[in-house]
């Protein structure tokens, strides 16, 4: 059983992805297969970058692992997403121009989190914040090395 919480600071692009890269190492140490650690790393990376690029005051990345699931939860307290359907459309992005120069803002983040999850939940309220929870089912893993 592994449980880790990372605090992610708003606008801290320099360190963007640090927590996710470290998470992948921790998951491998915990016996998670390379393939699932990759998927978890991708989910965490997208979530981490979202907190950096969009959340007013940053947020938290929480990961819990047991024999059955890898659970990745992201929370922030604003600004919230106005139109979730639009945000989940491939290519739609509200990333600032400077983020594009660094290679981000392709409008694939949330979709990519969903694609790498066995179960994906997102809820958001304007002015209150966004909560995303992704589960990867370790029992479906066909590559246990």
């Amino acid at each position: 059983m592994l449980e880790i919480t990372y605090s992610v600071r708003a606008g801290d692009i320099e360190h963007g992805g640090t927590a996710s890269a470290w998470l992948k190492v921790e998951l491998r140490k915990e016996g998670v297969s390379e393939q699932l650690a990759r998927r978890a790393g991708v989910i965490a990376f997208e979530g981490e970058m979202n907190l950096i690029l969009y959340a007013t005051r940053g947020g938290t990345l929480h990961v819990a692992v047991d024999d059955a699931y890898i659970e990745i939860e992201l929370n922030d307290d604003g600004p919230g997403i106005e139109d979730l359907d639009l945000a989940m459309t491939p290519g739609y992005s509200t990333a600032p121009y400077w983020a594009a120069n660094l290679g981000f803002g392709a409008g694939m983040g949330l979709i990519n989190m969903e694609r790498n999850s066995d179960r994906f939940e997102i809820s958001s309220h304007l002015g209150e914040g966004t909560r995303i929870v992704c589960w990867i089912d370790r029992r479906k893993d066909d590559n246990s090395t």
Binding site: K24, R38, G41
Partner: peptide
């Protein structure tokens, strides 16, 4: 193959093997 040279390139590459 990329023209992006931010530190995130390596972090992404590491995560994706």
């Amino acid at each position: 193959i990329t023209g992006t040279i931010s530190p995130q390139v390596i972090r992404v590459a590491d995560i994706l093997n």
